[in-house]
């Protein structure tokens, strides 16, 4: 069963056609990595999936319910998008933690004040999550007291605290130095082993190859190549992706 289905997505910023007729589906338990050069539309695709950008044309559905579809040749979003928002979580490149909230409050506030769940129950769940991530001693810390890697792990658990069915990552390690990158990738890997459904936009090729069930290579607003990581990396068909990977291996 597909959790996310995006069909024929188009998105332009002025004259710049960022997404040209992109279709993507993600099944339950699947880990999909999206790679590609800067400006290829990877992040925009995630931002469209999470309603941070509105699409110009196409269909977005979660659990076979349409959130956006074409009506009389125009895009139409459902009225209450918040019904869909608890289905997914998003981890940002620059964390976007709430600096005035402690780590625990960052995690607890949305489940309590958005989902109206019981405070004590949420607290127990959040503390369990923090323990799992080795962050239990940081519950009362503020984001500014944490390293970049710790902040990103907190933003991952903040997303997990909403119990999403699918988790999106928008270049989760691009703001981190190589040493801190490792601790964040370890967490994502752990989630993959637990069969969390994830879509990861990343520049970490080795990681994408190791952790994904499916890799998507995007360039200039279209999907150029898609398939099992061994196939896509080991037996690259398109010239564009070969060229991209070559440039990558140079550094």
């Amino acid at each position: 069963m597909s959790i996310l289905k995006m069909s024929n997505i188009q998105k332009s910023f002025g004259d710049n056609h960022v997404l040209k007729d992109i279709s993507l589906h993600v099944d339950k338990g699947e880990v999909v990595s999206i790679i590609g050069p800067s400006g290829s539309g990877k992040s925009t695709l995630l931002r469209c999936a999470t309603f941070l950008e509105t699409i110009d044309a196409g269909t977005i559905s979660y659990d076979d319910r349409n959130a956006a579809e074409m009506k009389n040749g125009k895009i139409a979003y459902v009225k209450n998008l918040n019904d869909f928002r608890h289905v997914f979580g998003l981890v940002f490149q620059n964390f976007n933690l709430f600096p005035h909230f402690s780590v625990l409050k960052n995690m607890m506030d949305a489940p309590v004040s958005v989902l109206k769940r019981d405070k004590n129950e949420v607290r127990e769940e959040c503390l369990t999550l923090l323990r799992k991530m080795g962050l239990e001693d940081k519950a009362d810390s503020y984001p500014c007291e944490l390293s970049g890697g710790q902040q990103q792990r907190v933003s991952i658990v903040r997303a997990l605290a909403m119990n999403p069915e699918i988790l999106f990552f928008d270049e989760p390690t691009s703001a981190l130095d190589p040493e801190l990158t490792g601790e964040v990738l370890k967490v994502i890997k752990q989630l993959a082993e637990e069969k969390m459904t994830m879509v990861i936009v990343t520049h970490e090729m080795a990681f994408a190859r190791a952790v994904s069930d499916r890799v998507i290579f995007m360039d200039k607003g279209v999907i150029v190549e898609e398939g099992h990581p061994e196939e896509v990396f080991g037996n690259t068909r398109s010239e564009r992706m070969k060229q991209f990977l070559q440039n990558y291996n140079k550094d």
Partner: peptide, 16 residues
């Protein structure tokens, strides 16, 4: 703008 986006994704209303 990231503060608004994080809140939006977590489902906070505009007033919240």
């Amino acid at each position: 703008v990231g503060q608004y986006e994080a809140a939006q994704v977590l489902g906070y209303s505009r007033a919240q």
